[in-house]
Amino acid sequence: MKVFEKPKALTDAPFHYCPGCTHGIIHRLVAEAIDELGIEGKTIGVAPVGCAVMAYNYFACDMIEAAHGRAPAVATGVKRSCPDNIVFTYQGDGDLASIGMAETVHSAARNENITVIFVNNAIYGMTGGQMAPTSLPGQVTQTSPYGRDVNHCGYPVKVCEMLAQLEGPEYLERVAVNNVANIRKAGKAIKKAFENQINKKGFSLIEVVSTCPTNWGMKPTDALKWLDENMLPYYPLGVYKDRSKEEK
C-alpha cells in the first residue's frame, strides 16, 4: 500500500526551485488539500510575481497569472463571477506584504471568500535577495548589507497579527515547514482554509514561514535551523483569528 506519493493535483513538471527551497513543500500541501477535498476540477489558482511565478506549470487545476501583488484582486474578480469555483492565491512576502499590501488588506476587510497562501521567507527571492517588508531586524540582505537597521528601514510587518485587527477575515493562521510535525500542521491549516471557502465562510489566509537558502546564503539544512532560531521567535506560530470560534 502506498503511504506517500506525489498528489494528483501537481503536474509532472519538475519544480524549477533551488535545491532545498521550501516552496516545493508548500506546493505539495496545497495540492494534497485539493486532492483530499476532490476539488481539482473546479479550483482556479492565481500565481504571483516572485519565485512562484511559474506555479501555473505545477498545479493541475486552472491557473491565472496576476501582476505583482494583485493576486487577491484577480481572485476577487474570479470568485465573484464564478462563485461555485474554488479560488486560491499563492503569494510571496514581497508580493503580498509590499507591493500588494492594499489588495491584501482590502480583500481581508471585505471578507472575500477566497483562500490565500502566503509564503513568508523574509526576503525577495526571485530578484536576488533584497530586503522585504518581512526581513528581520538585523537581517543581512543585498540591500541591507550591514543588517536591517530599524531606525532607517522600520520594523517588519507581521501580517497575521495586523489582519487580525480587522472585523472581516474568517481565518488567519501562521504555520511553518521546517520539520515533519510542522509540515503536518501546515497541511491541516491549508486544508481548513479551503474548507472555509467551500462552506462560504470567507477570507482565509495561511502564512507559511518558509526558507530561501540561496539568498540567505546557507545550505538548505542550515536554512531550516535559521528559520527555527530566528524567524519563529519573531513570527510565532498559531491561529490569529477564527470567527467560527468567536461566534460560539
Binding site: V3, F4, E5, Y17, I25, V180
Partner: peptide, 19 residues
C-alpha cells in the same frame, strides 16, 4: 520503517513510500 518523514520533507516530491 516506512514512516515517510523523508518524503514529507522532500521539496521536490521525488520519494514514494509503500508499506
Amino acid at each position: 520503517i516506512g514512516c515517510a518523514s523523508c518524503a514529507i520533507m522532500c521539496p521536490d516530491c521525488i520519494i514514494t513510500v509503500e508499506r
